[in-house]
Design a protein around this nucleic acid. Sequence first.
RNA 1: GGGCGGUUAGCUCAGUUGGUAUAGAGCGUUUCCCUUACAAGGAAGAGGUCACAGGUUCGAAUCCUGUACCGCCCACCA
Length: 893
Amino acid sequence: MEGEENLDYSTRYNPKEIEDKITAFWIERGYFFANPNPNKKPFCIVIPPPNITGILHMGHALNNTIQDTLIRSKRMQGYESLWLPGTDHAGIATQNVVEKQLAKEGLRKEDIGREEFTERLWEWTKKYGSTIIEQLKKLGASCDWRRLRFTMDEDYSKAVREVFVRLYNKGLIYRGKYIINWCPRCKTALSDEESIHKEIDGWLYYIRYPIIRAKEVKDLANDYIVVATTRPETMLGDTAIAVNPTDNRYKFLKDVKVILPIMNRELKVIEDELVDKEFGTGVVKVTPAHDPIDFILANKHNLEFINIMNDDGTLNENAGKFKGVDRFQARKEIIEVLEKDSLIEKKEPYWISVGHCYRCNTIVEPRLSLQWFVRMKPLAIPAIKVVEEGKIKFYPQRWEKVYLNWMYNIKDWCISRQIWWGHRLPVYYCKECYQEENSRERSKGVIVSVEEPKYCPDCGSKKILQDSDVLDTWFSSWLWPFATFYWPNPKRDLNYFYPTSVLVTASEILFFWVARMIMAGLEFTGNIPFSNVLIHGTVRDEKGTKMSKSLGNIIDPLEIIDKFGADALRFSLMFLASTGADVYLSDEKFLVGRNFANKIWNATRFIMNKLKDNDIKIEEDKVDITDEIDLWIIDSLNRTIEAVTVSLDSYRISEATKNIYDFFWHNFCDWYIEIAKLYLGSEKLKVLILCLINSLKLLHPFMPFITEKIYQDIKSYVTFLKDESISISLWPKKIVITADSDKFNFVEDLISSIEEIRNIKSDLGISATEKVKIFLNATENIRERFNYHKDWFMRLGGIREIDFVDNLEKVIISKNYFSLNIDFEHFDRDRLVKLLEKKLVNLRTLYEKVFNKLNNKEFLNNAPQEIVEREREKERYLSFQCKRLEKIKDVFK
RNA sequence: GGGCGGUUAGCUCAGUUGGUAUAGAGCGUUUCCCUUACAAGGAAGAGGUCACAGGUUCGAAUCCUGUACCGCCCACCA
């Protein structure tokens, strides 16, 4: 990379040819390797592992750019900066992908069996699993790629089993029959978080259940009780009806028999305060095996559980003649039958919130099923404490409340999945002595162990079967911050880098992942997994709709990289995404970054060409700066260094981009370079280089490619640059200058005078190219200082001639150090008077405001002295300005 | 039902502890300029009763209360 000179520096920055070479250079040199180093402080981020099925989308681009920006800036600031990469096996998602592939061959996974299917999954993983990793490299991610981890790596899997065993032995993992969320398409249990509630358009059906009074048997059609339900098909599994104990309307039910239509089963009548008198008819049908509340009721009141459904959502033999019918078809048919028998009282349109599988969007079925659970409350308590005590901080802070709210109400976590891709439960059953039970106690013949047991500890049998379920993917993800460091094996890397510094993620996985990592970290390492959580927004399209493949509104980051370059993508994202806010994107939004890269490119081109043309080499970075203009730009640079550093430290990344953008474009390019053009000796070039190099360094975390490219190329002219790569160079420090504010203020006066002159010329219709004569009044001393700047002042102000005068009758521009006037002799006087009048109106309004304030005794009594003084100053200034404008107006009238 | 946010220029958003002469930026827009680093550029403008109504305060975009609208999350909404 070094010495590679003279690539075509055309007027357009062309990222395409450059980026891949630079990526290869970085990786080859191992600049991003991080190792425990007692002389440095660690800074560490573990990547939120993307799914192996993933391809880079805008959300990844946003998430990873933030991380890379932080990692790169800390690396330059002298931290041992580790960004640990990896991927997630993504149980259901990956299985679905491979199943689809299989379907193309006309096969189902059952046809080839578990073993072969798992082999296929591994093949797929090897072939495609690192697609996204390569894409992250294109983005410029500075991960320590040697440390790439996968949630199904051998030792990672061991950590997962270890955790399972520890929790089991502590009594925090249990097996039991409960109502869980069941996806009939994926044919597996889901956790509550994996069941996404969405409102759908449905009906509330009022169904007549016949009753038989004990003493007199009446006409069935007219003697009934009405229940309301949104899921009529579940009635086939009803074993009771329930009313509120305080509901006097239904006291008579004690003395009657209630008959379930279609099944003609007698139902129990129970009373429970869970029943809402106001809803529907106040009578609720109870289906213990298919509804979570009914399940609770059934346990309280000893009801029978009747499972009417198969794992694919069709009804089973308990559904009588509806056996084999799909649940939604059954709903229709049941309604038809009931209508025929006049058992539907009415139906009302009803918005119902139902769970959807987060992987395939199928409507989730509540189903009674034997599953494994983690008791969460004991894990949550310390995890609540660390956040309440501020040991873990959220950015933006409001997420803390969301986190705590969820943690206070945490429920047990269903962790077993009936799929084949994932970590198999480290649970074994003895074929001889195990009997299925529904108990929180350990049952006989159940062995929970990290390694496969050789024989049953209860009966000694060698016939052992492993549980066929696998664990929820998040049961491995929650160990990510320490399992990636080979926990539980004692490793110095874990000691050094853990707790990690900050976790960067989207709000969507706050509960899935962030909260659980905090719990796991505290439980298994005794320490928090990270001290800061940075939560960024969601990427949306221009209209604010979430980007998704199915909606076809995605903007492919790889396409943006191809069109505008990775730097443009990165900078634009960081520029647009203020902390925590959603980002609305369209192709044009990336022009900010593209244009800025081009600006940097051209400013560099200018400076480099001047060095080349004059055959100048900059050999040292020490410059004795005395020129007022140089002091001014260096001071501005210093303030930018400070601002960018502070913004990054407080995770206001967007603000940091604005700090450097503003300095580079406006202060440096618009003013300093323009001024310097007149004085391009080695002194000015040194200052130009100083500003450029420091800007490049400040920009490097956001735009790593262009800054590296320029850094390498400029070395041949700037020989004090010793670092092999800008990515391992030192973060800018303020440049020590000796100057008081007098010098900066004087320059500010010059600059703002030019702005006013331009402004007035424009208002008077004087062309910008037409040069004017000005009169200037200043003390002898100031006049001398002014003369020093005369050349650039005249050039940028469009001034032909300056007359120094002792007395200015017609002052139009008044500054602290001098006042000046434009020679208006040849210009339109009416327009000038109008302009002056406009200005006067503004000034008078302001003056009045200040005047009123200063005549308010309360203000004088209560406001701090400095504020009052400031207002007094304002008043003096404004009254002076008003007077002088009036005077000049009179002169021209 | 519970919780958390938001409402500032045509659009997307900043605005940190209430006070710095006229509330900022990017995009868009109007006028002028191809002034040899950059037209992917430069110069100058227009555009805001800071959602509404009260309150606290010498002083409110900023703090408090209420209203309207929009959004997100959670929930045992049969």
